[in-house]
Amino acid sequence: MIELIEVRKAFNQGKHNEFWALDGINLCIEAHRVTALCGPSGSGKTTLLTLIGCLARPTSGRARFKGEDISGLPERFLTQLRRRSFGFVFQQFNLIRGLSAEENIMLPAAPSGLPQHVVRARAAMLLDRLRLAHRRTARVEWLSGGEQQRVAIARALINDPEVLIADEPTANLDTTLAREFLAILESFASEGRTVILSSHDPLVIQSAAVHRVINMRDGRIVANYHDA
């Protein structure tokens, strides 16, 4: 589904502090699977996720999404692709303070022009599924960490994306919540979504919910295991 060929990413290219965060990545991510990126801090996991999720473009190399080359697309198309096909759960959740859980969840759908009641119904459905229905109108800053994360997940799913991208999703969760989260991920994969996450939490990497682990170090892939 997602193919990366000789992808490199430089920060501050051409300046004295030039830094190659990714250095020759070749990777093919299959659909309907849960794929985990792992590796030490600074190894380039987040950077790789931004490339996969069309948040940034590779400095060199190609990226393909469903066979289509996306590395050269203009910003506008990337944004549309991002909105239609990707859902993001950020490490810091990045919810908008002062707005309610429901308002936050509905945000990614605003530019889509879908009728309000459709979006609202979908948000209600997601809240229900994530057992958050009772917190629908609560301001997000009053929610607990786990609740906030579930709001972030619901927001990532509001546009019904094919690919869910989660950066260190369990970093702020205790073991129980992390297990719960993995169970949710598994259900996504089984309903046909592709999940890509990054983590250095052994709980995630060793979990049966994760189908594939990609090990990274210094911007390169060092090994990857397939189970299942």
Binding site: T79, Q80, N94, R97
Partner: peptide, 19 residues
């Protein structure tokens, strides 16, 4: 800084600059 962060979030979740 808060507003800047919010704009960044909106863009990341699929809002265009135009939106």
């Amino acid at each position: 800084a808060e507003e800047k962060r919010e704009i960044g979030i909106l863009k990341a979740i699929g809002w265009e600059t135009g939106d």
